[in-house]
Computed example of a mutant assay.
Amino acid sequence: MSLWVDKYRPRSFSSLDYHKEQASRLKKLVQSNDFPHLLVYGPSGAGKKTRIMCLLRELYGSGAEKLRIDHMTFTTPSKKKVEISSISSNYHIELNPR
């Protein structure tokens, strides 16, 4: 079962309705075949994940949609536990520290 948001998320740059200039820049990066590493940041709800998933689909096709979820727990020297969740495909990794 998937969330409504994930089911109806735009899947291509052409279907994005806002910040079209950003989408066109990302599309030009994909077409240039000289794609750098990216670190994407911004406020909650700004469309970061949607744009990155569009970008991954442009670069790698539907293989970018096959996701794995991992949970890791680390104990720091001060005995504090840090949990990190990661969502990844063969082409990307998304880290969510808590």
Rank of each mutant, 00 (worst) to 15 (best):
H71I: 15
K27P: 01
S12L: 06
L16H: 03
T75Y: 08
S89G: 09
K48Q: 00
A23G: 00
R51M: 06
P43S: 12
L59G: 07
F74S: 14
P77G: 06
I93Q: 01
A64V: 00
R25D: 01
H37Q: 04
T76L: 09
F74T: 09
T73N: 13
E83A: 13
T73Y: 13
H92N: 06
Y60R: 06
R51D: 01
L67S: 08
M72A: 15
T50R: 02
K49V: 00
S32A: 13
W4V: 08
K66L: 15
L39F: 05
V82Q: 11
L56C: 09
S85H: 14
S62F: 06
M72P: 08
S44R: 13
Y91W: 15
R98M: 10
M72L: 15
P10E: 05
L3A: 05
S32V: 03
S62T: 04
E83K: 15
A64M: 03
L3T: 10
L59N: 09
I52V: 11
V40A: 01
A46P: 00
I84W: 06
G61T: 02
S15M: 04
S62D: 11
V30T: 13
I87T: 14
M53D: 10
R68V: 12
K20E: 03
W4L: 13
V5F: 09
